[in-house]
Write a protein that binds this DNA or RNA. Structure first.
Lengths: 252, 252
DNA sequence: CGCACACTTGAGTAATGTCAAAGAGTGTGG
DNA sequence: CCACACTCTTTGACATTACTCAAGTGTGCG
């Protein structure tokens, strides 16, 4: 059921690079540039960035980075879904965020990664060596401003999620999760949107601070109440979006 | 019991400003400059900053800003403790952080405040009008870098707190809270540090995603186990810091 | 076709929340 | 200075949500 979601290989990239007389770079044919941090860059800075970029695929379930490892690479997600998480010594896990197309992972990077990252689905990434990236950052106020903006959004999102983790009920948590997915740009914004759940129930539970059984039961109950329709276990139609939004907001 | 912690008035500031031939500014005699974001600024930028600053006290329990209000002012805490929080419609509250001396509130400010802020104790602040601050920020890469750094730290702290809220037990949460306070710069770093709790049990509970009763019971149990000594209800001696740290870390 | 894996459902439990009352510290007014 | 009132904290008894353990169901893949 964990669908592979294969992507077209991009062997044509190299050719294109040669044809235009420029160094081949994954950026030349990048699908997500328009929604990524790099979109903010001017031509000159952008070519410096594309000069240091390389690309790398990851299989589903593959670890991308681990908390505590030296932060030598910064990543941008080109396709697929990545989870960021922290763990306790006995294995309890808290997922602190999911990254999708165009999302950047590397903002809070000190010299070591503060969170682990694992591919939820097969993932394509472009990556930048830390040192070279930092040098570019030092020269480019535009880039710095953009990353600052991303970091600020991250803080707001994190605080939002703290409210969810600390104060919402299981029902409210799951409703928040589903409606947040429906609000994502890649999801059709219809009155009854249909959301993909590329992550397992375990991952949803680890994101919401619940157990897998509670997530499953809560979704089943939404189904019984006619709020959602489970097309498959990883594809959910939000039949009553407004009602779900009310539940998510913690309305009495 | 919520002690007032009175501060010396600073009427002498104006005199000092005149004596040195510069415009009077709270910055001239600021106690916390060395630990605040403004410390990063060069002389010229610093004088621009001190030209737009004003200072304002708040009483304990007084609201400083409210979520959703237009973000017209940015604050720096000079003394006292401030809580940042979000609420659900029915009043459930999640405190997302406490600010102390030298902490800046205004990093994630879009055009509206994303969280509410309230004085936990009497607080002295210095404040900057948003527009003027933004203009200074646009001219000062140093300032921007510094705020970026603060924002990144904020992200790391927020993720840490997500792990606590989503996956730690009440016992682990309270131990984490106490040991985190002990790690603050203003707390003596002895083997058995004594921490002040300027906030009420309700506020501790709202920070840890618990109820006031659970917080109280957990602290009482720590006391019964000899891990802490309650000197008063808002002053706790961490008698067995290492044991508390182990509990906080979620060691088996 | 059947194994493997993820998901669902059920029954019982435990941690934490709720409701209630008593205790302790602080400030006020007689 | 003491008594009272107020608030915050602590403690107790009970309720409930969500967790744990366990069995069963469904779906995809070899």
């Amino acid at each position: 059921m964990r669908e592979p979601k294969l992507h077209q290989p991009r062997n044509i990239d190299t050719l294109l690079g040669h044809r235009t007389g420029r160094t081949a770079s994954p950026c030349d044919t990048c699908d997500v540039r328009s929604i990524s941090f790099c979109d903010a860059l001017e031509d000159q800075e952008f070519s410096r960035l594309s000069a240091i970029v390389s690309s790398r695929p990851f299989e589903g379930r593959q670890t991308i980075v681990q908390e505590g490892d030296p932060a030598e690479w910064l990543f941008n997600v080109v396709s697929g879904t990545v989870k960021l998480y922290r763990t306790l010594p006995d294995g309890r896990t808290q997922i602190v965020g999911f990254l999708g197309e165009g999302d950047f992972m590397g903002i809070p990077a000190a010299t070591e990664y503060a969170v682990s990252a694992e591919a939820v689905t097969p993932v394509e990434t472009c990556l930048f060596p830390r040192r070279a990236f930092d040098r570019l950052l030092a020269d480019s106020p535009t880039l710095e401003r953009r990353l600052f903006e991303l970091a600020r959004n991250e803080v707001v999102a994190a605080r939002d999620h703290m409210l969810l983790l600390g104060r919402k009920t299981a029902r409210e948590k799951v409703a928040s999760f589903l409606t947040a997915l429906a609000a994502r740009p890649q999801c059709a914004h219809t009155p009854t949107p249909c959301v993909d759940l590329p992550m397992t129930r375990t991952e949803i539970a680890d994101y919401l601070g619940l157990t897998i059984e509670t997530v499953s039961r809560t979704i089943s109950r939404f189904r019984d109440e006619g709020l959602v329709v489970l097309q498959t276990s990883d594809r959910v139609l939000l039949a009553k979006l407004d009602a779900l939004r009310d539940i998510a907001a913690g309305a009495d």
